[in-house]
Simulated scan of single mutants.
Amino acid sequence: MRAAQPPRTLTRVTGMGEETPMNPIRLRAPVSMSLVSLIAVVAALTGCHRGEPNGASPLIVAVPPTHAPADRAALERALSETAGGPVTIRVLPSQEALIALAGTKQADAYLTPLFDYLFGAHEYGGHAVLQAVRAGGSRGYAGAITVRKDSPIRDLAALAGKRVAFVDRYSTSGFILPVRTLTLAGTEVEPVFAGTPAAAVAELRAGRVDAAAVRANLVADAPDLVVLATTDPIPNEPVWIRADLAPDARDRLVRAFEALSTTPQGRAALAGVADIVSFVPVEPEVFSAVHDAVEQTGKRVADLVPGGWWVHHQNAVHPGDLGPY
């Protein structure tokens, strides 16, 4: 087994890191090869043709590994009872595989991280119908830039040129919006990508970086840390549907997800899905502010989704050819 490697330190960046060696746009070629393989896997798993779902054929909900239910069979039973027909949860092997699937009719709905939805809405006309709710009725969260309590740094300006631990390039609260906050403050930093929120905080506590950017609730009550700034609010992720899903199927899915929190069986089945406690109706406009904030940094949503630029390019060159129909 390989020994764990320390986080990689990248070159100094301004804003979202356009000049670093790991710019997502420069990764298009390797990502495309990965997606070609993933699309082949999707085709093998789902079959080449699928008609519109009805009372007998299942409604298919696709999720990435981050939202894989602890008990998939229990969640499928709970959803099916209210939907008036079978509901199948399909766990894709990665975000890239889910993005590839979203260009097909092999799934009817998706429960994904926020930027996967924004990309799906832009590329395929996906439509948000529900929003996840977490403990205490929380429908959103924020990122935070934090330092050690014994650090002399007490404002963002003092972070100029310092090492800051981020989660990864696709993390909303652990990179994208914290970098926007730094950019608006006119502060350039040296990023270290730790891989997980816990690892970013560990780097800070160990003194290997001067600050860390993670979800605010992870550090809000830490007695040894001080929060310098928080980001704009980030809405919880949505359940979204493909653009051409029949209204009856859409209504059945919405009704089924909303009902999960109303029964003991539904709550138990939902308990193992990314700490979500319920779903509530939502309008797509709820997510517009985050989309606009990203574009204000000069970035596109495709920059922030694994494989996003390759999919966008394929859609432009070969619309409708990304997967099996």
Rank of each mutant, 00 (worst) to 15 (best):
M1N: 13
R2M: 10
T11F: 15
G17E: 07
R26M: 11
R28G: 00
S34I: 15
V42W: 14
A43I: 07
L45E: 10
C48S: 13
R50T: 03
L59P: 10
P64H: 06
P69F: 01
R72S: 06
E76C: 02
L79F: 00
G84Q: 01
T88A: 13
V91C: 15
V91R: 13
E96T: 04
A100T: 04
A100D: 02
Q106D: 05
A109Q: 01
P113H: 07
L118K: 09
L118G: 12
G126P: 00
H127R: 10
V129D: 08
G137L: 06
G140A: 14
Y141S: 13
G143P: 07
G161Q: 11
A165V: 12
D168Y: 08
R169D: 01
Y170G: 04
S173P: 03
L182A: 04
P191F: 00
A194V: 15
A200E: 03
L204G: 12
A213Q: 04
N217C: 04
A220W: 05
A220P: 05
P223M: 09
L225V: 06
L225G: 01
V226P: 02
L228E: 07
A229P: 01
N236R: 01
D244G: 04
A246H: 07
A249Y: 03
R250E: 14
L253A: 08
L260Q: 03
I276T: 13
V280R: 12
P281G: 08
E283D: 12
E285V: 13
E295T: 09
T297P: 09
K299Q: 10
R300T: 12
V301C: 07
A302R: 01
A302W: 02
V305F: 05
G307A: 03
W309K: 03
Y325N: 14
Y325A: 11
